[in-house]
Design a binder for these strands. Structure first.
Lengths: 108, 108
DNA sequence: GGGAGTGTATGGTTTTCATCGAACACTCTG
DNA sequence: CAGAGTGTTCGATGAAAACCATACACTCCC
């Protein structure tokens, strides 16, 4: 009798400390993912589900982009009921790559 | 009678100020180009010709990589006799994207 | 339990990008 | 001026990545 609220496999996460620079740069060098990160930065943690983002791609592609963002240590995800909610890993990522997130978040 | 030392077309340059973040990130998200930038950062300006870099690609690919770096405002080139010598645009690029170059140049 | 909502996995298509070989252009030197 | 050295351009190839449609898995609510 474990206290589990979900029978789904928890998403695999990579800590920013384990991410090579090149991977971080590649993750952020995509227009859709830049949009995701920017939108995510505008709301409190755990308030945005994956499907709530305004990007011009289908569900499958969107899911793929979140996998990439997780693998780059940029996003943390947690299952909440039927939805998967997100959090931008601001501090951890900034500790590993100081200033990088700021460059992406600022609008030129 | 103009004072010209070269009849070759000067390479097209893009100033960092005119470079979108995404372009800068994409330019740096490549192992060969990271090597070029790192090696270039280790020597004084205008001392390295294109062919003098130790990267595992042919001439054509190398030329392409320098085109990308120029287009991202990372590298400036000048013809010097038969060679084309390079300069890393440290200050200009850092003014436009503070901290980004530092992230790439540090070895983790 | 059925059905709607949400997200992932799979298979296949398209696009993009790095790469190469070969041909060409320019510079210098002998 | 012929030839070596340097770098670019062109066309083609192969690999990687983005994308879609479909099918599947899980959660919640009626």
């Amino acid at each position: 009798m474990v206290e589990r609220t979900s029978h789904r496999a928890a998403p695999e996460h990579t800590h920013p400390d384990d991410v090579p620079v090149q991977t971080a740069l590649a993750a952020l060098a995509d227009p859709v993912r830049i949009t995701l990160v920017r939108e995510l930065s505008g709301c409190p943690a755990w308030t945005r589900s994956c499907g709530s983002f305004d990007v011009p791609v289908g569900k499958a592609a969107l899911s793929h982009h979140f996998t990439v963002l997780r693998g780059a240590g940029l996003v943390e995800q947690r299952d909440e009921g039927p939805k998967r909610v997100n959090r931008l890993r601001r501090e951890e990522f900034d500790a590993r790559f100081p200033g990088l997130l700021a460059l992406v978040l600022r609008e030129d």
